[in-house]
């Protein structure tokens, strides 16, 4: 069933070992009249955490959706280098990006399988490996040893990640019943179970308390250092970004306005103006503030 759908458009060929893990060139995404991403180029390396930051509506999640195939970019090239094989992500269907290029992602609004158990969530993530082991269900149907071994391995891998995220005791809970912070970490663990070379995290620290935030930092560092993969991170929480990222990209209104080491970006005047200077904008113009005060005063 798989052979028929093989995609011939994936480039294979040896490339230099130092080629970046992900190379985004001239990415543009247009929704009708709205230019959500305007000619953005950047790269991400393995064993590095690359953070994409920017004010709301800057197009960060759209970049992720293009990378993971949920949107087809209007123009641009997205090249992923997996062990010397190049994948043009913009040409691949979403599920093949995970299946073949091994790019995994999490979502801004957590998308677990809420009625399935925590363990099942992690095993489903290993679907493709298990399908091969079960000879597309036939070996599994008759309970062949090959499949049983593969399933045991899958459970052990799940256990490995459960230990990492401290959820071993809740492995048989329904994922939907977990507290919010646990759900966030479970989603990351689930993505890691697909054995990715690039992990894209969409606001993983959103809604976490300070302690959970610290745990998250540790988990991400562990993923980078022990598994040697590249991490792409969208985050608003500057404590997370500045603490753990090796490389920061700043988007504003769909354009890249800065790209570099965290310290360099932090002191970049354009960034301060567009992003960190945002707080000044939040102050209301004096006439509106006065107007508001009058209104609330009048009602009270």
């Amino acid at each position: 069933m798989i052979g028929i759908f093989d995609d011939p458009r994936i480039a294979t060929g040896a490339v230099s070992k130092d080629a970046p893990l992900l190379q985004v060139e001239h990415l543009t995404m247009r929704f009708g009249g709205l230019l959500a991403i305007n000619d953005v180029s950047f790269s991400a390396a393995k064993r590095e955490i690359t953070a994409i930051i920017g004010p709301n509506g800057a197009g960060k999640t759209t970049v992720f959706n293009c990378l993971t195939g949920f949107y087809k970019p209007t123009t641009g090239r997205l090249t992923l280098n997996r062990e010397g094989t190049l994948f043009y992500l913009e040409r691949m269907e979403d599920f093949r990006i995970s299946q073949e290029a091994h790019v995994a992602r999490t979502f801004q609004n957590i998308r677990l399988f809420p009625a399935m158990s925590v363990l099942e969530n992690l095993v489903v993530a290993q679907h493709n490996a298990l399908m091969r082991a079960s000879a597309f269900t036939f070996a599994g149907l008759f309970g062949l040893k090959r499949y049983r071994t593969a399933e045991r391995d899958a459970v052990e891998r799940a256990r490995y990640w459960l230990e990492r995220i401290n959820l071993v005791d809740r492995a048989d809970w329904n994922a939907g019943n977990l507290p919010y912070g646990d759900q966030r970490r479970l989603e990351i663990a689930r993505a890691m179970c697909t054995d990715p070379v690039l992990l894209c995290l969409d606001e993983p620290a959103a809604g976490l308390n300070p302690r959970e935030s610290l745990e998250l930092n540790e988990l991400l560092r562990f993923i980078r250092d022990e598994h040697g993969i590249g991490v792409l991170l969208i985050e608003h929480d500057m404590s997370v970004v500045m603490e753990i990222s090796d490389h920061v990209i700043v988007l504003d209104y769909g354009r890249k306005i800065a790209d570099g080491a965290p310290e360099a970006v932090r002191s970049d005047p354009t960034v301060i103006k567009a992003y960190l200077g945002e707080e000044e904008d939040e102050e209301l113009p004096p006439e509106i503030a006065a107007d508001l005060e009058k209104k609330t005063g009048g009602e009270a």
């Binding site: 599920f95 995970s98 995994a104 399988f113 009625a115 399935m116 489903v124 079960s134 269900t137 599994g140």
Partner: peptide, 21 residues
């Protein structure tokens, strides 16, 4: 089996399934 778990996962959230390959 994996196929059955994938069915249930699809029922729960198709987008997440696609992101898992």
């Amino acid at each position: 089996l994996p196929i059955g778990r994938a069915w249930e996962a699809l029922r729960e959230d198709e987008i997440a399934c696609r992101s898992l390959g």
